[in-house]
Structure formats: structure tokens, C-alpha cells
Design a protein around this nucleic acid. Structure first.
Length: 232
DNA sequence: TATCAGATTGTCT
DNA sequence: GACAATCTGATAG
């Protein structure tokens, strides 16, 4: 996919028509915008995981399980799927693919774009932040830092009227020369043979990434090996 | 730095 | 009734 987009412009609805596996690395480097009472928080996506299709045993929609919770995943791509995990944390996903094909990309880590964004995120965060990953390195942490809860389930990322949006990152979003690591997804032992699939993507050496894979050096690839949103 | 148990509730069987 | 796409603080080395 090669879309000509101006950095800062909202990603178009068509961006979300691809599979979750395609979208996961493409979302790296894109900008997540969140409207809060204190102002707009802007941050860059640095870690994602793909949960794709009814055959993925790691997915909430495995086997076509369509319930009140997973309903958003069955809709057209471009909506937010937000759910509660372990009774106290929320997780944010970007729904992709066509209607009735449940696929989503879990956003696992973001980094604040500017100092003002970091200030707002720290304010929302609550607990002690010593290192970058403490702020927003992890799906539960980033939702707290951005004030995301189930009220945002179904929000449309491509709509200017939405309180949660996705905009194009810099000229190299989806890459920009940074190496991308593809590694197994986190905490889904029940997914059996799907647990080992390298469907987690993150920027190597980025301090906001939640967990560093020991074999990341061997597994990392130049970003040019992944689909690009922008031409060079 | 690494490991571990506890927290806490919506969701599904 | 069991468990979850997690995080945190405590404890040991």
C-alpha cells in the first residue's frame, strides 16, 4: 500500500480495509490523537499485535464467536475495540478488514510526541513513572495514560468528530529507517500453535516498548521489508 | 535485575 | 464458577 498522505492528516477510512496482519506493522509510527479535558494528547505507536480472523486461537473472535463484547470486531475496519482485562485494565485495538471478518490490531505501546503530551499523560497515569516504558509501554498503561475506557468502544479513528483518532506519522511512518522486530505475541498461552506466530511488531531499541524479545537482533528486519504507507 | 503473588470484575461456560 | 490480549509492589539475590 502506498498512500500519499500529509503527515498529521487523518488516516482515511480505506486504510483500515487491509488485514490485521498487514495493518499491524503499518500502524507503527502513526499518530494516535486523544481529546481530553486538559487538551489533545498526541503520541506515536511503537508496538502492535495482530489478532486476525476466526481461525486465530488467540483472538476473542476465534471460531466466529460473536458476542456483545466482540461485536465491534465484526464491523467494518476503522473502529476502536476497547475491552476490560483482569478486572481493572483496558486494552485498545484498531479494527481492520471488511464487515463480518473480525480482525483487530492491539496497540501495546506508544510514545508521547512532545513534552506537552508527556505532561498530560503523566497526569492521567497515576502511578510512579521512572522509565519511559512505565508511562505507556503496555496495553493497560497506555490506556490509563490516555484516559481510554469502554466509553470509547466503537469510536471511529478516521472521523474528525471522534475523541480518538489516527493520523499519518512522519514521512517514514511504518518504518522511517528504524528496524522492526517481529516476535511472538504476549500472554496468550491458550492460543496453542498460534501463540508462537510472530504477529507482534515493534521498533527495535525504542524505550517505550513493553517487553524486549531476547532474540530481537536476529529477528529484526529493516523497515523496508514491511509494507510501507509512504514512498521514500 | 528477576521472580512472584495479589488485585478485581466483565464475560462466557 | 473459572478465567482473562495486565500491572504493581514486595521480596530475594
Amino acid at each position: 500500500m502506498n498512500l500519499e498522505l500529509t503527515p498529521g492528516e487523518l488516516l482515511p477510512r480505506s486504510f483500515y480495509s487491509v488485514s490485521a496482519l498487514e495493518a499491524a506493522p503499518l500502524l507503527l509510527g502513526q499518530i494516535l490523537e486523544r481529546d481530553t479535558e486538559e487538551g489533545v494528547i498526541r503520541c506515536r505507536i511503537v508496538e502492535t499485535e495482530s489478532y486476525g480472523g476466526v481461525e486465530d486461537k488467540g483472538s476473542h473472535a476465534y471460531g466466529g464467536r460473536r458476542t456483545a463484547r466482540t461485536e465491534v470486531m465484526f464491523g467494518e475496519g476503522g473502529a476502536a475495540y476497547v475491552y476490560l482485562i483482569y478486572g481493572m485494565y483496558h486494552c485498545l485495538n484498531v479494527v481492520t478488514g471488511p464487515q463480518d471478518d473480525p480482525q483487530a490490531v492491539l496497540i501495546r505501546a506508544v510514545e508521547p510526541l512532545a513534552l506537552e503530551d508527556e505532561v498530560l499523560m503523566r497526569r492521567c497515569r497515576g502511578s510512579l513513572v521512572r522509565r519511559p516504558a512505565d508511562l505507556s509501554g503496555g496495553p493497560g498503561k497506555l490506556c490509563r495514560a490516555l484516559g481510554i475506557d469502554k466509553a470509547l468502544n466503537g469510536a471511529l479513528f478516521y472521523s474528525g468528530a471522534s475523541p480518538l483518532r489516527l493520523a499519518a506519522g512522519g514521512p517514514g511512518a511504518g518504518g522511517s529507517g528504524e528496524r522492526i522486530v517481529a516476535a511472538p505475541r504476549i500472554n496468550i498461552p491458550y492460543a496453542e500453535e498460534y501463540a508462537a506466530k510472530p504477529w507482534r511488531f515493534y521498533y527495535r531499541d525504542n524505550p517505550y516498548v513493553s517487553i524486549i524479545d531476547k532474540n530481537s537482533e536476529a529477528r529484526s528486519k529493516p523497515s523496508s521489508d514491511f509494507p510501507r504507507l509512504f514512498n521514500k
